[in-house]
Design a binder for these strands. Structure first.
Length: 568
RNA sequence: GCCCCUGUAGUUCAAUGGAUAGAACUGCGGACUUCUAAGCCGUUAAUCGGGGUUCAAUUCCUCGCAGGGGCACCA
């Protein structure tokens, strides 16, 4: 519809000899302002040396003529808005198309032919996945779905730090507890906490962990080139491998619950070699320089931070690994766009990394975008793995499942409700903003929430089910509204769906779809409460609305990753 | 100290430079007892402060104030 209005306005401007200025077409918030409104007249009036209302009037006439029967009214209002209302027959035709499209209703082609690789979640093996990763996972998955829906060929990848100080700490802890083959993420988590404390408590253990860190890099490098390992090295390697496996298994379980399926899983250990090579090359080209035995990138010359890429121990830092990762990803999945989603605390690092990359591989840096999201902040203070105040992803999910069970004992229902509630909580606000999360109050399962939209859909599906079962029972004596306004309001909102999806995708902001679906659900609930569907006077039309609503809602929920339920 | 982000009802969040700033929670009041009450209807309540740009600013610029994050060998 959006596109239709734009086209018609452009045509009208051309025939009237008006310039094609910038303008918006927006869905109105007040019914008195029509269905859509545009500000074109106000934008071009100055250049034409006419009053905005005068321009609007001329334009409105031309637009009305072009829209013909599709328009109910085209009016000039306020300072010079042109308000357009569509006719019921036009909505009918849009919705006819929607029903025909089915699951494809809302899909688009604006990204067809494009290849997009998108990195998200990024929990680190040897640590637990916490609610911050969960937030990234949810946002990343939804954005991937939006890109796919717009026709792009997408690849999902996640990147985990399986080497580095945090791993050394965990390995140190495991060694201390005499565990050579860890079997649960709990064991590893405890080992990590132990190692972290040891790292800070004494210089001896500090040095020992540092040595372990270097040793692990060394072992992995040897393994990478198929060199024989010593007995000790072999043991270290095996413990490391078992630990990584256990962590990844736990992550996969969570991804499964969220219906996330990665095409690629990259590890730090994969990126070390290509990363170090790139930095070495860059060093000879004076992109990097040596300082205090470390290799650094002088970000300050570009107004950024100066950061270490290779430590004086010769081990690569996160920056180098990310550099290597960028090169690997491009090799595995040559793309038109590479998107990396992380929490916003990493903005500084990515600015530096991308700046360095632009000097090494300009084209690659240009198409790489870092999309930061906000923090999951606790009302009880900052999460700290040392203090044991980290809220893990699985703990959160279990918690919400328990609350959902108070209403419905069924495991599957409770799980889907919980996932829906969490996904909704994350996606309902603009992606850059922090989420203030109160672990005590947990999160809402009513009102503006995941279950609210799930429930609305459940009711619609239930109605459709009963209707399908030949449920044309007794005709109701219930009085009908004289001219029911609800179907029309619902119809109007339903027709906006593709535009909302496109808008959210362009801005990489699923919250626009969340807001829309919530409004849609609310209108459906109002409709449901006030209209008799089965057995009503206009059963056919009402059932059609139910079907359309169900189709639109489920298409939308799929884009967000909110699970669809048949019953609840 | 330097850099980045954020300040909207009591609370948690929306809003494409546009018209009357939109929800939810909480509070209070209500309806139906018929397709699922995790629902429906009603009601009170907000743009941090000062300047500026604009026909029009919650939105852009600037100066404050407040909060969060980042600033060399962590990821």
């Amino acid at each position: 519809m959006h596109e239709l209005v734009r086209t018609v306005i452009h045509e009208a401007l051309d025939t009237l000899g008006f310039p094609r200025g910038e303008f918006t077409v927006e869905y109105t918030t007040h019914e008195s302002h029509g269905d859509v409104a545009t500000n074109i007249a106000m934008n071009i009036a100055k250049g034409l040396e006419k009053s905005p209302r005068e321009v609007a009037q001329t334009l409105a006439d031309a637009v009305r003529e072009r829209l013909g029967a599709r328009a109910k009214s085209v009016e000039v209002a306020g300072p010079g808005f042109i308000n357009i209302s569509f006719s019921a027959s036009f909505y009918e035709s849009v919705l006819e198309e929607a029903l025909r499209a089915g699951d494809a209703w809302g899909s688009a082609t604006m990204l067809s032919g494009k290849r997009i690789i998108i990195e998200y979640a990024n929990p680190n093996p040897f640590k637990e996945m916490h609610i911050g990763h969960l937030m990234g996972a949810i946002i990343g998955e939804s954005l991937s779905r939006f890109f796919q829906n717009a026709g792009a060929q997408t690849a999902r990848d996640t990147f985990g730090g399986d080497v580095g100080p945090h791993v050394a700490k965990a390995l140190f802890g495991l060694h201390h507890s005499g565990i050579s083959t860890p079997t649960s993420s709990k064991e590893i988590g405890e080992a990590y906490v132990y190692g972290s404390r040891a790292y800070e408590d004494s210089t001896d253990t500090h040095d020992e962990i540092d040595k372990l860190n270097v040793a692990l890099y060394h072992v992995l490098e040897k393994h990478f080139v198929n060199e024989n390992l010593t007995q000790d090295e072999q043991e270290l390697y095996e413990t490391w491998q078992a630990g990584r496996e256990v962590s990844m298994k736990a992550f996969e379980h969570l991804y499964e619950m969220l219906d996330i399926h990665f095409d690629y899983v990259f590890y730090d250990s994969d990126t070390v070699t290509p990363g170090l090579e790139a930095v070495k090359r860059g060093l000879s080209e004076n992109i990097f320089e040596k300082s205090d035995g470390a290799i650094i990138y002088r970000g300050e010359k570009k107004g950024l931070h100066t950061l270490v890429f290779v430590t004086s121990h010769g081990t690569p830092t996160y920056e180098t690994k990310d550099l290597g990762l960028a090169l690997i990803k491009e090799k595995k999945f040559p793309s038109d766009k590479s998107i990396i989603i992380t929490a916003n605390e990493q903005v500084g690092h990515f600015n530096v990394m991308l700046c360095a990359l632009s000097e090494i591989e300009g084209a690659l840096a240009k198409k790489t975008i870092h999309v930061p999201h906000g923090f999951m902040r606790l009302t009880t203070g900052k999460m700290s793995s040392r203090k044991g105040t980290v809220v893990t992803a699985s703990a959160l999910i279990e918690n919400v499942i328990a609350i959902a069970k108070e209403k419905n004992e069924d495991d599957e229902v409770a799980t889907k409700v919980a996932i829906g509630a969490i996904v909704y909580m994350v996606l309902r606000q603009s992606p850059g903003a922090d989420i203030i999360f109160d672990p005590e109050k947990s999160l809402s399962l009513e009102g503006d929430s995941g279950p609210y939209i799930q429930y609305a859909l459940v009711r619609a599906l239930s109605v459709l089910r009963s209707a399908g079962e030949g449920g044309r029972d007794a005709t109701s004596s219930r009085p009908q509204h004289q001219s029911p306004p609800h179907p029309y309001i619902l119809m109007r909102t339903l027709a906006q769906f593709p535009d909302v999806v496109a808008y959210a995708q362009e801005r990489m902001a699923p919250n626009f779809l969340v807001t829309y679906l919530t409004k849609l659900a609310s209108q459906w609930n109002t409709f449901y409460a006030s209209e008799r569907i089965i057995g009503g006077e206009q059963q056919e039309q009402m059932l059609r609305m139910a079907k359309l609503f169900a189709q639109t809602m489920s298409n939308g929920m799929k884009l967000l990753g909110v699970p669809i339920l048949e019953k609840m």
